[in-house]
Structure formats: structure tokens, C-alpha cells
Design a protein around this nucleic acid. Sequence first.
DNA 1: CAGTTATAAAAGAGTG
DNA 2: CACTCTTTTATAACTG
Length: 320
Amino acid sequence: MDDGYLDALTIAAEDRVSEFSLKAALDHSLKPSQGTSTQALQALSHFSMDDFMPDFDAETFDGGTSEPAFQFSDISHPHPHGTVGIVQPPPPDSLPVQPVHHLPEPPPGPLTEARHPQVVLHNVVATFDTGTAVDPRTVALRYCNTEFHPRRAAQVIMRFREPARATCLIWKSGKVVVLGTRTIQGAKAIARKCARILRHTYPAVQFKMYRVVNIVGSFKLPYPIQCEAMHENLRESHSKYDTEVFCALRYKSEDPAVKLFFFPNGHVGIVGAKDATDLERAVPVAQALAQPFRLHLAAQPDRPLLVPRAMPLISPYPYH
DNA sequence: CAGTTATAAAAGAGTG
DNA sequence: CACTCTTTTATAACTG
């Protein structure tokens, strides 16, 4: 590690430029012999953390003037399908977030929770095309909070401060993958933010072909499940249950086209959803599949319970 | 406590 | 040409 590198790191720390970005730039793009530590620092120091990740403002963002493709309607207005029955996970150290939109009035009865388990959205994956060739190395050099390991992968990783761990993967073709947001609208906001940031360097950057490709969510059934018995009752092509490998029953749903994970404690994971409707429709499907195999601990004490090998149910549940 | 197991999805370079 | 890798995310049992 040469002196120029250490100097650059020191000054970078003072300038609030991230160390790993500078390090990546030096390691993968620049040679100390060329005196490029200073060069890299100069390039990076043009951008402070706030320049790089300004708070999103739907009113001023991109103005919506130069490119008709930029529409803010989906940010300022609810999703066409709404987010009925879907809530965001509560932020740490705060009260649970209530659903944004109105839920239909639940039918009377004690099983309200069982009839309307609330799906929590955990991750959204989306893609878009800037329509312009991008040099990953240049992007890694120009912006802080980017990561580029050309020997490991071809894309530049651009991480965002808000929401936490929101990430964009940028390829030299100009195509971008957006990851890590917990709302469908948030993914598009990050995508647009990425496009705007790239436009600093590549003025021709557009925002084309945006689409959500995958949504991950989960919900809790109010009873434990006999996964072994459930698996035996399902078509072999659609159900996989091998506790030696993974402790959940994996179910391939066709409508909606998602993968469901049934955990013995009643947690159900949903992956592969394309929109909020897929998540909503997965709930009754999962309920119908699991209901006949819920554990009735107090009902039949004489019958031995089918206990999954890898996950013994230790504590009794208050369901009869 | 971190990593492994499994899952979807996109991108594209790299490997067999 | 078909995979693998990389990234994100929840879920939970198990290993080091």
C-alpha cells in the first residue's frame, strides 16, 4: 500500500467519501506508478454523500419535462391495485406501520386473522434500461457508495442510504437491476434516482422498459402446520419437503405463479410475485393448502403427532 | 454469531 | 450452449 493511497484515504475520510469506493477505484482501475491516487481522489471528491444521494423529491425529480417516459403519477398516487392486505414491516424501534389503504370490512367471527393474514413485503426486484452504454469502471470512480469487482462480476453495485440497502446493479449495456426496496413504489423511485445519478456522467441516460420482476413477501398462519402430512397429500411435482436439506415445504403455485414456503411454525414465504395482486391471491391458496394439516395439539392427544425431524415443536400452541 | 441450506428474478461476463 | 456467479430478502434449523 503506497503513501499516495493512504493520503487519499485520509483525505477521503475527511471529505466523507467512502473508503471502499476509493479502494475499489485504486485496486481495479488505477496504478500507483501513474500517480493516479490523486487523480482518483480528485474524481471522487467532486461528490459529497449528499450530492450522491439527495433526498428524493417527487416534485422536482427530473421535472418530467425532457422525457415523456418519466411519470410521477405512480409515486404520488396509490398503486392501481392498491395494497390491500399488504403492510410494510415496521421500521426498527418504532410502532408498526398500518396498511396504507383501506382493507375490506372483515367478516365477523373469531378467525379474522386467519381469514386475512397480512402479507409483509420484504424485497422488490425491478429492471430498467438507460438506453446508453455505460462504463462500470467510470461509474465506480465517479460516485461514492459504488462497488466494482471486475474479476468477480461485470456490474457496478450502487447502494443507497434510503431505503437502507436499496441497491442498483449497473451493466455496461446500460441495463440496471434494482433491489432491496420494501415497496413497489419505492423500487421505481430508486430506479429513477439511479437514472438521474447516472445522467451526471451520461447525459443521454433514459428511463425505459421499467418493470417489476420479482417480489418477496411473507405472512403468518395462526397455527402450526404438519408439513410431512401436507407434503404427502400434494402432487409430487408441486411439493418438495426434505428437512435434511431445508426445513420448509416448498410449493409451486400455478395461479398465482409464485413459490410458497410453508414452515412448520405457520410462517409462509412468497417469492416470485410480479405485483401486489399475486401476493394477495397467494394467501387464500396457502390457507386452503395448509388448513387441513394444521396441528390440533389438544384435540387428539392419543394420536402421535407428525413432528418434522429437523424442527421439533417444543412449545404448545393455544389453538384447538 | 456468521454461514449454509432453498426460492424467485434480472443482468452479462466467465467457465466447462 | 448451459450453467455459475453476484445482489437483495424473508423464512428456520443446523453447523462451525
